Amino acid sequence: MGFLGKLVIYALIAAAGAAFATRPSVEEVRELYRDMVAEEIADGSIISAENGAAQTALAACQVTPANCARLLEGVISFDYENRYLFATVETRSPFFEPRSCIAAFERLLCR
């Protein structure tokens, strides 16, 4: 194996170690999700046109998005699954569509 091959293998090992060391815990995922919801409430992108009750509740939340996100956190259910190098998170709430997220490198990416 040449120098370039060894370099690639060492880079993959280092990336795996970094992913393992920076995978967010359940508490960190909750905090990251709360921050993400607060940002979506503030810019209005989270309000669904199909759900009138959610529209009313979230429109009222526009005044203080961070506090509202903390309150909404109580009705959001999290299914956190540790995958060693990353974590998968499924969220469900009566106000939003279910989301699938991946937590890795101290980040939360949802679709």
Rank of each mutant, 00 (worst) to 15 (best):
S77E: 04
V37R: 05
T56I: 11
L109G: 01
A66W: 07
E28M: 12
T22Y: 15
E97M: 12
A19D: 12
G17K: 04
E97D: 11
R70L: 11
S100N: 15
V63Q: 15
P98I: 03
V63M: 11
Y33E: 02
V26G: 02
C101M: 09
R107S: 15
R99S: 13
A54W: 05
T22Q: 12
A54C: 06
A54G: 04
L32M: 12
E81S: 10
N51F: 11
T64V: 09
E50S: 13
S100D: 13
R99Q: 15
L108Y: 06
A54K: 05
L108H: 06
Q55L: 10
A19V: 10
A18G: 13
E40K: 15
V75I: 10
Y80M: 07
T91N: 06
A69V: 08
D79Y: 00
C110Q: 11
A42C: 02
E27Q: 14
T22N: 12
P24T: 14
S48E: 04
I76P: 02
P94S: 12
E39T: 04
E106K: 13
C110D: 11
S77C: 04
E28R: 13
R107Y: 11
L58Q: 04
T22P: 01
S25E: 08
R34S: 13
E90D: 09
V26K: 09
P94T: 10
R99F: 04
L58N: 01
Q62W: 05
E40D: 06
T91Y: 07
G52H: 03
N82G: 02
